[in-house]
Each structure stands twice: as C-alpha cells, then as structure tokens.
Nucleic acid binder design. Structure first.
Ligand SMILES: [Mn+2]
Ligand SMILES: [Mn+2]
Ligand SMILES: [Zn+2]
Ligand SMILES: [Zn+2]
Lengths: 153, 153
DNA sequence: CAGAAAATGAAAATGGTTATCAATAGCAAA
DNA sequence: TTTGCTATTGATAACCATTTTCATTTTCTG
C-alpha cells in the first residue's frame, strides 16, 4: 500500500504534501477513540504512556496542521484552553452544536433542533454575505448555562 | 444627589454594594463614547491622556465587575484578546450579533434577520433546557469569514 | 471628620500557546 | 536498500494577555 492511503486523513495529509508520522497518527488516534472534546494537554497526557517521546509542542503543531487541513475542529469556550475534536468529515459525530456549563465546564453535543437551525443559518448567511459583502465560511453557535448538578450547589 | 444615582450604571453598582470610583466612571465613559468593541488595552490607551493614573490592572478588574453586574458584555473571537462593549441595557446599541473577518479582525454588528433568529433561539433554548436539564442564560452566535478588502488581497 | 472596608497601582506571577534551533525521521529517487 | 533532501520533532526559552499579591489610597458610612 502506497504511503498516505491507510485512512482518509492519511490521504488528505499526504495529498497536501505533509508527511505521515507516528506522532500525527497517534494524535489522530487519540481523538478518534475519544467522544469528548480534548485539550492539547489532554491529548499529551493520554499519549504519554504509549508515546513518552511525543512532546506538547508537537501536539500543538499537529493540531494546528489538522485544523488547517479540515481534519480537526478547534473550539474556544472562553475558559482559557482550546478544545479539539475530529470534524464531521473525519470523525464519527454528525453535525452538532454545543451546550456549555459555565460552572463545571461540561460540554454537551446536541444535534436536536438542527432542521430549524439549518434553515435559519442558511438564510442568515446568504443575507449577511450579500449585505456586507462577506464570504462566510463558518459560524459558532454556543449556548451557555448551568447544568443540573451545578444548579444544586 | 445621593451617591450612585447619576446614571443607571451608578445605581446598579451601588445597589450591588460596589463603590463609585473615578476609574469606574472613566472606563464606562470610554465604552459609552465608542461604537466599537474595545479590548482592555484599547481602553487603557484611550484613558491614559486624561487619567494617567489608571492602570491596566484596574481596567481588567473593572471590566470583570461590569460583566458580572450585566453592564458590559465580553466577547472572545478566538484571536487572543477579549473585547468589551456595553450591554443592550446600558448602552445605545440594540440586540445584535457579530460577523468577524478572520483576516483583518474587523467586527461587524448586525441586527438583520433578528426575527428569524429570535424565533430559532427561543425554541432551541426551551428545547435544550428541558432535554438536558440546563438553565440556559446566554448564547453566542458568530459568523466568520472574509471581508471584501481581505478577499481582494 | 474619622474609621472600616473596598479599591487601586506597581510589580511579579501565571499559564496556555508559540518561536528557536539543532537533531531526527519520512520519503522520493536512484 | 541506500542516499540525500528537507519536513518534522523535542527541549527550551520566549510570548503575552490576564491574574495575583500586597502595601497604599480612596470611598463612603456614621
Ligand atoms: Mn462537539
Ligand atoms: Mn457588538
Ligand atoms: Zn455544570
Ligand atoms: Zn477583513
């Protein structure tokens, strides 16, 4: 099997002229196995048992590369550390948005109400693009609040 | 005139047990006079001519207080520095959301399409609150893209 | 005006992320 | 398989917005 064709992400990376390295594979592997939103440090710690040689710097560099190539999505919920998950195209989650607890920082993926949302988003994007002469290529929709456990405190 | 009753924000602050200081007044004044989204440093620089004694630390502390008391809204667009503007209740802008140029970091306030949006938001908030047992008290809706000038480059 | 407590400024600390740079590893070509 | 070029990496230091510390000043009540 030629290089870069073991996975979709491998094809994507080598197709873009990037090399396939053990570090990159390991990082994507951690993201693939998790259903959570991981920080760079989360990934570093998870990896450290099997790959003690992979440094935090490489995690950051790799995540940036994966974001640029559309393999990973980066989220900043305003609590100081970025979180990452595989994109819809490369992961196993379908399109969703986020519900974030301001107290315990739990993140809930939701894909309810998406029909309404798609309708609203499409209309708004088209309208904004025209009115403000913007090329819109993304949006963020987050709801913030308190989960049941944190309300009880 | 009794303390804390010169402005709505003064009433709010002293009503919450906070003191009215020249620094706090000056900071709110800068925000009131601007129609942009200001960073802590923006405010510091703007203030420095008339109030060279007010330090950046106080700006940060005051902004945090104003956010807690609902006088100021804080936004993080993912480019490293938080931006602030008066809330709908204490400023002169009506409810709006943001269009952000990823290249030049221009922020456009838009309030078009708000009817559709309000409908969508209300429905979604209610649905999410019930399904996930969350008390939702805020949301962020940002559209990201490239403005005309940045596309031309 | 005096006293208690809140607020402040200067300076240092924090903490997530990025830049540097010499050493290493991937991969295309031979 | 070996070679050579260069992308990639790890260790370390630097960055930089924001926070903490703490002694001093200011606000506000009585
Ligand atoms: Mn998610
Ligand atoms: Mn705005
Ligand atoms: Zn919670
Ligand atoms: Zn632009």
């Amino acid at each position: 099997m030629p290089h870069g064709h073991g996975h979709r992400w491998g094809q994507k990376l080598s197709g873009c002229g990037f090399r396939l390295t053990v570090g990159r594979e390991a990082i994507i592997d951690v993201l693939s196995r998790s259903d959570k939103h991981l920080s760079a440090e989360d990934i570093f710690l998870e990896l450290h048992a099997d790959h003690p040689g992979i440094g935090l710097t490489t995690i950051y560099r790799t995540l940036e590369l994966l974001v640029q190539t559309g393999i990973v999505a980066k989220f900043e919920f305003g609590h100081g550390r970025a979180k990452y998950e595989l994109t819809e195209e490369y992961g196993k989650k379908k399109h969703h948005h986020h519900l974030f607890c301001k107290s315990c920082q739990t993140i809930i993926d939701y894909s309810d109400f998406m029909e309404d949302e798609i309708t609203y988003i499409k209309k708004t994007e088209k309208g904004l693009a025209k009115k403000y002469d913007f090329q819109i290529d993304g949006h963020i929709i987050n709801f913030y609040g308190l989960c049941r456990a944190c309300r009880a405190k």
